[in-house]
Design a protein around this nucleic acid. Structure first.
Ligand SMILES: [Mn+2]
Ligand SMILES: [Mn+2]
Ligand SMILES: [Zn+2]
Ligand SMILES: [Zn+2]
Lengths: 144, 144
DNA sequence: AAGATATTGAAAACAATTTTCAGAAATTAG
DNA sequence: CTAATTTCTGAAAATTGTTTTCAATATCTT
């Protein structure tokens, strides 16, 4: 099932309405792989849809997160970011502290070790976050 | 060198002053292993030192972080927390989403794998954060 | 088409953090 | 020690990201 259908299903499930703003926001949100803050997406949308308000953008992003179309991220810069969720795949991030580049990665061995740490403490993991901060290859090179 | 000396050295290095508030805040901060928010520490201090202001507590915690006596943490509850840093040891956290319990752990194998992920992307790690969120053993048991 | 209900955008409210500023305290110079 | 200089403090105001309010509007249901 595609994201649009998933969204529409969620709306009707919850008795919410299918508005033009929500569809435009969804389309723009999905059309990129970025990790958007509300501000980022609001500014991008404003170019073609200057009537859409900031509050609507923010409310809609929260709605996406609620229905599983978006994941909320926080990379420590004081802004919540949202990224499109496609399949069930999980990933973590490398974040360049110089230029802001975000690289995604998956490392099943790390996930496994996390489970074993949790088991040691009889802890039930619901979710986790792993972020590696530093310099990307370009910024590392520029530093020499 | 102990924390107090490290702090005093930092103050003189930076031309800052050695005030009674700073010493009281440091003492209280070090006397626990908690992960304090500014609010937490402010409330604790207020019992014995009702004259100390919130802003001073916050400024001082930032100062501790600056000189390496404290580490800033963010467990996604919208409050920055500070914890005393003792040696050079690094640790990550298990955070109970039900009762707020925080368990610390170290897992060298995970750290190693992080390095290898970084190497794959020619990325230079400066620091990282790994948090496992879920239910602690007590909250897991209470859930059955 | 009319009624019921949810949504929108602008502005106001919030909450955590940071800054301002005038009086107080610490340090330095004499 | 005293005076001059500089930093610090506490209260209040300002900032910033986020969330809520509310009256007008759009959507969905008969
Ligand atoms: Mn991502
Ligand atoms: Mn800790
Ligand atoms: Zn970079
Ligand atoms: Zn618990």
């Amino acid at each position: 099932m595609d994201q649009l259908q998933k969204f529409k299903d969620y709306l009707s499930l919850k008795g919410l309405k299918n508005t033009s703003q929500r569809l435009v926001i969804l389309e723009t949100f999905l059309s990129s792989e970025s990790h958007y803050s509300t501000e980022d997406l609001y500014l991008k949308l404003r170019i073609e849809h200057p009537k859409i308000g900031y509050a609507t953008v923010h409310r809609t992003l929260k709605l996406f997160a609620e229905c599983g179309i978006a994941a909320e991220r926080n990379f420590g810069d004081g802004q919540t970011r949202f990224e499109p969720v496609h399949g069930e795949e999980h990933h973590d991030h490398l974040v360049c502290t110089r230029c802001g580049l975000i690289i995604e990665f998956e490392e099943p061995q790390i996930e496994k070790l996390q489970e074993s740490v949790a088991a040691t403490h009889q802890f039930t993991i619901e979710n986790h976050r792993l972020e590696l901060y530093g310099l990307c290859s370009i910024c590392t090179a520029a530093d020499l």
